[in-house]
């Protein structure tokens, strides 16, 4: 059940640095570099009176992983590294999933690594990839291909749009639920990681 969301999340990350400068041509994030910014996520669930809105900041460190820190409406953090996944609420660990228990996660890392390097072939095994670029920016539309177990992919499409950076992502599910994410204040840096982020990615990683 967790699969589509991991996909979505990681594809966003893959696409974000891709959009830096010349898309699809050269690896945008070099080892030691990181990309950070803010996000707003709207989750539209059928039957709910209003979308669930959350916001916070993210950090992607090349070769290390991702920190997804939701600040509003409350504090929760997800850390994804090649070693696995860790979730914290108010700084307290509530879930930890080693990569060995989730081969999917490891596969996603392969895909991610490929996408960061401009190689979309790993992605193309599971998705049809449609790219368009125009004057104002570019879009990428991903649709899942049927796997061995269709029930495992309750995901309809992922649309990513951006210009210099990723601006927005929309994820649609078969039951009509959809998420809309917008990104802002994206900054690329080559300074070493520090503080809580460094700890989460370098020492606490599952």
């Amino acid at each position: 059940m967790m699969r589509p969301l991991w996909f979505a999340l990681l594809l966003v990350i893959a696409a974000a640095p891709l959009a830096l400068g010349r898309p699809l041509e050269q690896p945008p994030l070099r080892p030691g570099e990181s990309l950070s910014g803010r996000f707003v996520q709207e989750r539209h669930l059928a039957g709910l009176t209003a979308p669930l809105v959350s916001e916070g900041r993210f950090l992607l460190a090349a070769g290390k992983g991702l920190v997804w820190h939701t600040e509003k409406p409350f504090d929760t953090t997800i850390v994804i590294t090649p070693a696995g996944l860790l979730q914290l609420v108010d700084g307290r660990e509530v879930q930890r999933l080693p990569a060995a228990r989730a081969p999917l996660l490891a596969r996603l890392y392969t895909m991610l690594g490929g996408a960061l390097g401009g190689d979309w072939s790993a992605m193309a095994q599971d998705f049809s990839v449609e790219r368009r670029s125009g004057e104002a920016g570019w879009t990428i539309l991903l649709k899942p291909l049927a796997g061995d177990d269709p029930a495992a992919v309750p995901l309809q499409s992922i649309a990513i749009a951006g210009s210099a950076f990723v601006d927005s992502v929309e994820i649609h599910r078969p039951n009509g639920d959809w998420d809309h994410l917008t990104f802002s204040n994206e900054v690329r840096s080559s300074a070493p990681l520090a503080g809580a982020d460094a700890r989460l990615l370098e020492t606490d990683a599952p």
Partner: peptide, 23 residues
């Protein structure tokens, strides 16, 4: 604490819930 965990799941990037389940 269970409430906080549920909220984190509903809002978080790895959301597993739809409205039917939440009901």
């Amino acid at each position: 604490e269970i409430v906080a965990r549920a909220l984190a799941s509903v809002y978080g990037p790895i959301g597993i819930a739809d409205a039917n389940l939440l009901r």
